[in-house]
Each structure stands twice: as structure tokens, then as C-alpha cells.
Deep mutational scan, measured.
Amino acid sequence: MKVTIEENEETGKFTIKVKTEDGEEKTIEIPKENLEEILAKLPPNVEII
């Protein structure tokens, strides 16, 4: 699983794009305050880009 994290400076939010092993892609946008909480919940086999 690969996770790409991009900061949107205009909105102050982060866009998180997840690509699973089977090629499925999902995108979510979260507030900056929630980034550490989300990262802590990721499984250890995740590659963060």
C-alpha cells in the first residue's frame, strides 16, 4: 500500500491519496490538526510518499 500526502497551503488541509496492492485508489482531505492521528493509525507495511 502506498500513501501520498500533499499539503494544500490555501485551505490548510492535507490531501491523502491511498493506492492499495490491488490498484484501488482513494483520496481524502483532512485538517492539518488530524494528520498525526491519521498517521498513527496506518499499518506498518505502508509506504509513505
Rank of each mutant, 00 (worst) to 15 (best):
residue 22 D to W: 09
residue 18 V to D: 00
residue 41 K to G: 11
residue 32 K to C: 10
residue 48 I to T: 03
residue 31 P to A: 13
residue 26 K to A: 08
residue 18 V to Q: 01
residue 6 E to I: 14
residue 12 G to D: 04
residue 44 P to Q: 09
residue 8 N to I: 04
residue 19 K to V: 15
residue 46 V to M: 06
residue 38 I to D: 00
residue 7 E to Y: 15
residue 48 I to L: 07
residue 16 I to V: 09
residue 25 E to G: 02
residue 39 L to S: 00
residue 2 K to Q: 11
residue 33 E to G: 09
residue 19 K to I: 14
residue 32 K to E: 03
residue 8 N to C: 08
residue 17 K to E: 02
residue 19 K to C: 13
residue 10 E to L: 12
residue 14 F to S: 04
residue 9 E to F: 12
residue 21 E to Y: 11
residue 36 E to W: 15
residue 44 P to H: 12
residue 39 L to A: 00
residue 48 I to W: 14
residue 37 E to Q: 12
residue 23 G to C: 07
residue 39 L to H: 00
residue 4 T to G: 01
residue 5 I to Q: 01
residue 30 I to T: 04
residue 17 K to C: 09
residue 17 K to I: 13
residue 29 E to H: 08
residue 21 E to W: 14
residue 47 E to M: 14
residue 8 N to Y: 03
residue 2 K to D: 01
residue 1 M to A: 06
residue 42 L to S: 00
residue 19 K to S: 08
residue 17 K to V: 11
residue 24 E to S: 11
residue 17 K to H: 12
residue 36 E to M: 12
residue 24 E to A: 07
residue 7 E to C: 15
residue 27 T to D: 03
residue 7 E to N: 05
residue 44 P to V: 09
residue 1 M to Q: 04
residue 25 E to K: 02
residue 10 E to K: 12
residue 19 K to Y: 15
residue 5 I to C: 07
residue 3 V to W: 13
residue 4 T to L: 07
residue 21 E to N: 09
residue 44 P to A: 09
residue 18 V to S: 02
residue 22 D to A: 07
residue 33 E to T: 06
residue 44 P to I: 09
residue 23 G to L: 02
residue 31 P to D: 15
residue 14 F to E: 02
residue 43 P to Y: 12
residue 21 E to H: 07
residue 42 L to W: 06
residue 4 T to F: 14
residue 28 I to K: 01
residue 26 K to M: 14
residue 15 T to I: 14
residue 4 T to K: 04
residue 26 K to L: 14
residue 13 K to R: 12
residue 35 L to T: 00
residue 3 V to D: 01
residue 31 P to N: 13
residue 14 F to N: 02
residue 10 E to D: 12
residue 15 T to W: 12
residue 46 V to A: 10
residue 31 P to T: 13
residue 41 K to N: 11
residue 48 I to D: 01
residue 16 I to Y: 05
residue 49 I to L: 09
residue 6 E to S: 10
residue 49 I to M: 09
residue 41 K to R: 13
residue 41 K to Y: 09
residue 48 I to K: 03
residue 35 L to H: 01
residue 4 T to P: 02
residue 33 E to W: 12
residue 20 T to C: 15
residue 35 L to R: 02
residue 44 P to T: 08
residue 30 I to R: 00
residue 19 K to M: 14
residue 19 K to F: 15
residue 11 T to K: 08
residue 45 N to E: 07
residue 4 T to H: 06
residue 24 E to K: 11
residue 37 E to F: 13
residue 49 I to D: 04
residue 38 I to M: 11
residue 8 N to F: 03
residue 40 A to Y: 06
residue 49 I to F: 10
residue 19 K to N: 06
residue 3 V to A: 02
residue 15 T to N: 04
residue 29 E to K: 05
residue 7 E to D: 05
residue 35 L to W: 07
residue 34 N to M: 15
residue 1 M to H: 03
residue 31 P to H: 11
residue 34 N to H: 13
residue 25 E to I: 12
residue 37 E to I: 10
residue 36 E to N: 11
residue 39 L to T: 00
residue 38 I to S: 03
residue 20 T to H: 08
residue 36 E to K: 13
residue 25 E to W: 15
residue 31 P to C: 12
residue 41 K to C: 15
residue 3 V to P: 01
residue 46 V to W: 10
residue 5 I to L: 05
residue 41 K to M: 14
residue 46 V to Q: 03
residue 40 A to F: 06
residue 1 M to K: 02
residue 21 E to Q: 11
residue 33 E to C: 08
residue 41 K to D: 06
residue 38 I to A: 07
residue 15 T to F: 11
residue 38 I to P: 00
residue 49 I to S: 06
residue 5 I to M: 03
residue 7 E to Q: 09
residue 22 D to H: 07
residue 45 N to D: 10
residue 24 E to Q: 12
residue 32 K to G: 10
residue 10 E to C: 14
residue 17 K to P: 00
residue 37 E to G: 07
residue 6 E to T: 13
residue 9 E to H: 13
residue 37 E to A: 12
residue 2 K to I: 13
residue 25 E to M: 08
residue 15 T to Q: 06
residue 48 I to G: 02
residue 44 P to C: 11
residue 36 E to Y: 14
residue 6 E to Q: 09
residue 28 I to E: 04
residue 20 T to S: 08
residue 25 E to L: 07
residue 1 M to E: 02
residue 49 I to H: 08
residue 15 T to K: 09
residue 22 D to N: 10
residue 41 K to E: 06
residue 36 E to H: 13
residue 20 T to I: 06
residue 41 K to V: 05
residue 40 A to N: 07
residue 3 V to H: 02
residue 23 G to Q: 03
residue 38 I to K: 01
residue 39 L to M: 06
residue 22 D to K: 07
residue 41 K to H: 09
residue 32 K to H: 08
residue 8 N to R: 02
residue 38 I to Y: 15
residue 47 E to H: 10
residue 16 I to F: 07
residue 32 K to A: 11
residue 20 T to P: 03
residue 17 K to S: 07
residue 28 I to M: 11
residue 39 L to I: 06
residue 29 E to F: 09
residue 12 G to V: 01
residue 20 T to F: 15
residue 24 E to G: 08
residue 15 T to H: 06
residue 37 E to V: 08
residue 43 P to F: 15
residue 22 D to T: 09
residue 2 K to T: 12
residue 33 E to M: 06
residue 31 P to F: 14
residue 5 I to D: 01
residue 14 F to L: 14
residue 3 V to F: 08
residue 16 I to D: 01
residue 40 A to L: 11
residue 3 V to E: 00
residue 5 I to R: 02
residue 42 L to Q: 00
residue 9 E to P: 13
residue 8 N to K: 03
residue 37 E to H: 08
residue 7 E to S: 07
residue 40 A to K: 11
residue 5 I to N: 02
residue 10 E to H: 11
residue 31 P to E: 13
residue 18 V to K: 00
residue 14 F to R: 02
residue 40 A to H: 06
residue 39 L to E: 00
residue 11 T to N: 11
residue 49 I to A: 04
residue 49 I to P: 03
residue 1 M to C: 14
residue 36 E to S: 10
residue 28 I to R: 01
residue 22 D to E: 08
residue 33 E to S: 08
residue 30 I to V: 14
residue 32 K to D: 03
residue 24 E to F: 12
residue 38 I to R: 01
residue 1 M to L: 09
residue 37 E to M: 13
residue 40 A to R: 11
residue 15 T to L: 10
residue 13 K to G: 15
residue 6 E to P: 00
residue 19 K to Q: 14
residue 43 P to M: 08
residue 9 E to S: 12
residue 8 N to S: 06
residue 5 I to A: 01
residue 9 E to M: 12
residue 26 K to C: 15
residue 36 E to V: 09
residue 32 K to I: 08
residue 45 N to P: 05
residue 24 E to T: 10
residue 22 D to Q: 07
residue 26 K to G: 04
residue 7 E to G: 05
residue 13 K to T: 14
residue 43 P to G: 15
residue 35 L to A: 02
residue 34 N to F: 14
residue 45 N to A: 05
residue 46 V to G: 02
residue 20 T to R: 04
residue 22 D to S: 09
residue 41 K to P: 00
residue 6 E to K: 05
residue 34 N to Q: 15
residue 27 T to H: 08
residue 9 E to N: 11
residue 48 I to V: 07
residue 38 I to V: 10
residue 33 E to A: 10
residue 11 T to I: 03
residue 13 K to F: 12
residue 47 E to G: 05
residue 12 G to M: 03
residue 38 I to T: 08
residue 37 E to P: 04
residue 39 L to C: 06
residue 2 K to C: 13
residue 17 K to R: 11
residue 16 I to A: 00
residue 16 I to C: 06
residue 36 E to A: 14
residue 46 V to Y: 11
residue 15 T to Y: 12
residue 22 D to C: 12
residue 44 P to W: 14
residue 19 K to E: 10
residue 30 I to Y: 03
residue 29 E to Q: 08
residue 29 E to I: 15
residue 32 K to V: 06
residue 41 K to S: 11
residue 17 K to G: 02
residue 41 K to A: 11
residue 4 T to W: 15
residue 40 A to E: 06
residue 40 A to P: 02
residue 5 I to G: 01
